[in-house]
Simulated assay, not measured.
Amino acid sequence: MGHHLELVQHVNAPAEAVWRVLTDIPGSARTLSSISRVEILTPGDYAEGYRWRETRKMMGKEATEEMWVADMDAPTSTTVKAKSNGAAYTTRFTLAPAGDGTRLSMFFGAEMESPGAFAKVMLALFGKLAMGITRKQMARDLEEIAAKAEGRDQAAA
């Protein structure tokens, strides 16, 4: 049982510029306004197995999640995963040429790993609300990634 969403953002920059922004995990708190801090757990460059802790403010509260790169094919796609409170999260970014820019697609999925009856009821009641809030946040993230790749960084403003 789970939920997912997909979003697309046109970026007026080449895929390589978008890729640099997407994979700059140490700098992500300067790019994305909802991220307050990042702790790198795996030294080195962005690659499969790279891990970090990301603290975000959502719905007025801060939450820290450990995330890792599950798959990547630079500069066209990457998949990031996380697990928290009995849920498994998958975020996949795909970059494709689009005219003079890049089509940046994002898939986000949340799956309950072993939901009990209560969790199933709560997911049915509040899952769509939570995904609506998540959709707004992810759309803002994509806009801020585009702004950074295009050289018009808004997060620090």
Score class of each variant (00 low, 15 high):
Pro115Met: 07
Lys136Asn: 14
Gly116Phe: 03
Glu113Ile: 05
Met131Gly: 04
Val121Asn: 05
Glu111Leu: 04
Phe126Trp: 07
Ala124Pro: 03
Ile133Asn: 15
Met112Lys: 08
Lys136Cys: 12
Met122Cys: 00
Arg103Gln: 11
Lys128Cys: 03
Phe108Asp: 01
Gly116Val: 04
Ala124Ile: 01
Gly127Pro: 08
Ala130Cys: 11
Ala119Gly: 06
Leu104Asn: 01
Met106Ser: 11
Gln137Met: 14
Ala117Arg: 08
Arg135His: 10
Phe108Leu: 03
Phe108Pro: 00
Lys120Val: 04
Lys136Ser: 12
Ile133His: 08
Thr134Ala: 09
Gly116Trp: 02
Leu104His: 00
Gly132Glu: 03
Ser105Cys: 07
Met122Tyr: 00
Ile133Tyr: 05
Leu125Asn: 04
Ala119Thr: 07
Lys136Arg: 09
Met106Tyr: 13
Met112Asp: 05
Phe108Gln: 02
Ile133Arg: 13
Thr134Asn: 14
Met122Glu: 00
Ala110His: 05
Phe107Tyr: 06
Met106Gln: 11
Leu125Trp: 09
Ser114Asn: 12
Lys128Ala: 13
Gln137Cys: 08
Lys136Gly: 13
Leu123Gln: 12
Ala117Tyr: 10
Glu111Asp: 08
Leu104Arg: 01
Met131Val: 06
Phe108Val: 07
Phe126Gly: 13
Ala119Lys: 04
Ala110Trp: 15
Gly127Val: 08
Phe118Arg: 14
Met112Phe: 13
Met112Val: 05
Lys136Leu: 09
Gly132Cys: 03
Gln137Gly: 12
Met131Glu: 12
Met131Cys: 08
Lys128Gly: 11
Lys136Ala: 06
Ala117Gly: 08
